[in-house]
Design a protein around this nucleic acid. Structure first.
Length: 515
RNA sequence: GCCCCCAUCGUCUAGCGGCCCAGGACAUGGCCCUCUCAAGGCCAAGACGGGGGUUCGAGUCCCCCUGGGGGCACCA
């Protein structure tokens, strides 16, 4: 039997980290067993659907490399993969259930039901709805269905215990008496999630239903539907929810905006985003995928992080290559308590993955950021690319995200932006400008103008002059880069070259703070 | 209110009765390295929610309590 899993987002908002993690588990399970991973769009709730939400979801999956074997844009043997296009199927199946006596029409209005629910609440009683036509004989029920616009409800069998083995939770059970007769098809003919899901999972031959724990309470209803359809159950696995950093509440796509903190805004501003752009992008925040893509996180790092969130390979592995993850993934090793999303650990992983990335790919990843910042031309020539490469090498492990290139390497591509504090601390001090001016004359003749010889000559110079190397080094750094942090000084000078280095030193010495 | 689930360092986790006075990782603090910032190395601090059982022995099994979470729609 081939394993078939699915992820079924509803396009009512943007995918968050938790949703992606659930999708990843589905994907891993399918890949591990050489099965299929299906993407299905659960969009039966047309009023709440937002067509513009679909593309970002698909793009997110593509970016992460979570390929789907069947679904939007790729089709498949059970197309269409949009529930909104399968309503006829659900209606047909629901009618069959009525005919078989497992379901019945319901004429209650929304107002009546609301009143019932409120009354139950007021009486502090659980609300368990049983329709008035529940016990109508099947042929009469069909007659009602044909003559009136009626919703269809499942007739929940009374007095039973539903027990099943969840792959992650273990044995779980429910009393059917406590389950109200659920709506299968709305009065307007549109199926409801619980029903459409079962019909589709059955038709699409889904073998493993891996979904978030918030769906656990939907499971008894769905089990009842499977039974009514005389179908065998898939394997159920309810993965714990992902909670917000700092709270124990599950991540929700409704208020992702609250993750747009001042710090997040500052980061995005640094990349050239305006507040208007940030505010118009709902998924551009630390709970969404787009944020990490924009900042230049490596997708492999995100996948690794998400895979380790609630799952472990063994007692110590943190960095787990995707093929290892696929080879060893199992639902049995999925943890069963909620996991809190930790941006710090993700950031650390991003750095680890960046370190492992081949140089060429680092250069390729960094170029778009330099282009967008207007530091290099859109189609950089070979010389520029060679220079970018040298800068990337100089940045070394400082580069954790592609966007870090702007943090550590921008000054290689434009004049330094002199940080007043840095100038005050490292340049505008007694004797320093003179020292700098004097050493500049040494720099004029250093041969070759390379890191090693530069270092040697600076050491010699300081020794013969009896000055502290630190003073000169810091002064040089600020004079040539404008800031106090960055790659090794000698690497910086070498990349800048003799002429540019001298020009920058002269420029720095012209500053008003210095005389 | 009712139903269901969960419970190891701040966080992610290992642990499936003795290998655990609980291991790893992120974060934190200190030291080393060092031209800054990273990275790296070393060290430190830090957890089995509580109470009952079962057992020669319990983080591990059972029960209760407490705490947390999820769900109770003609939403998904």
């Amino acid at each position: 039997m081939t394993v078939r899993t699915r992820f079924a987002p509803s396009p009512t908002g943007f995918l968050h980290i938790g949703g992606v993690r659930t999708a990843l588990f589905n994907w891993l399970l399918a890949r591990k067993h050489g099965g299929q991973f299906i993407l299905r769009i659960d969009d039966t709730d047309v009023e709440r659907n937002r067509p513009e939400a679909l593309q970002p979801i698909l793009e997110g999956f593509r970016w992460l490399g979570l390929s789907w074997d069947e679904g939007p844009e790729v089709g498949g043997p059970y197309a269409p993969y949009f529930q909104s296009q399968r309503l006829e199927l659900y209606r047909r199946v629901a009618r069959q259930l009525v005919q078989a006596g497992h379901a019945y029409p319901c004429l209650a209005t929304k107002e009546e039901l609301d009143a019932e629910r409120r009354a139950a609440e007021a009486a502090r009683q659980p609300y368990i709805h049983r329709g008035r036509l529940r016990d109508l004989p099947a042929h009469e029920a069909m007659a009602v269905l044909d003559s009136r616009q009626a919703a269809i409800r499942l007739r929940v069998p009374l007095g039973q215990t539903l027990a099943l083995q969840d792959c992650i939770r273990g044995p779980v059970s429910w009393q059917t008496d406590l389950i109200g007769d659920p709506i299968l098809v709305r009065a307007d003919g549109r199926a409801v999630y619980n029903f459409a899901t079962v019909v589709d999972d059955l038709e699409m031959k889904i073998t493993h239903v891996v979904r978030a724990e918030e769906h656990l309470s939907n499971t008894p209803v769905q089990v009842l539907i499977y039974r009514a359809l005389n179908a065998s159950l898939p394997v159920f696995a309810h993965v714990p929810v992902v909670t917000e950093p700092g709270s124990r509440k599950k991540l929700s796509k409704r208020d992702m905006k609250k993750f747009v903190t001042a710090e997040v805004r500052a980061r995005l501003h640094a990349l050239g985003w305006t507040d208007e752009e940030i505010d118009s992008r709902e998924d551009l925040n630390p709970a969404g995928i787009a944020y990490y893509r924009e900042l230049g996180y490596l997708p492999a790092a995100l996948v690794n992080y998400l895979g380790r969130l609630g799952w472990s390979l063994d007692e110590k592995s943190e960095i787990i290559p995707l093929d290892t993850m696929i080879a060893h993934f199992s639902l049995e090793r999925v943890n069963n308590s909620p996991a809190s999303f930790d941006p710090d650990k993700l950031y650390w992983l991003a750095g680890e993955y960046m370190r492992m990335l081949p140089l060429d790919e680092k250069v390729n990843g960094v170029v778009p950021y330099l282009v967008r910042a207007g530091l290099i031309a859109e189609e950089p020539d070979a010389d520029t690319l060679a220079r970018v490469r040298r800068v990337v090498v100089a940045c070394g492990d400082r580069l954790k995200l592609f966007s870090d290139i702007l943090l550590y390497g921008a000054f290689f591509f434009r004049d330094p932006w002199y940080d007043p504090q840095a100038v005050a601390k490292r340049l505008a001090k007694d004797g320093i400008p003179t020292l700098l001016r004097d050493f500049a004359s040494v720099l004029r003749t250093v041969e070759p103008f390379a890191a090693q010889t530069l270092e040697a000559s600076l050491q010699d110079y300081c020794q013969s002059r009896g000055c502290k190397t630190g003073d000169l080094i810091h002064a040089l750094r600020v004079a040539t880069t404008g800031v106090t942090v960055g790659p090794g000084l000698y690497d910086c000078l070498e990349i800048l070259g003799r002429d540019e280095t001298l020009r920058r030193i002269a420029m720095a010495l012209q500053r008003p703070e210095i005389r």
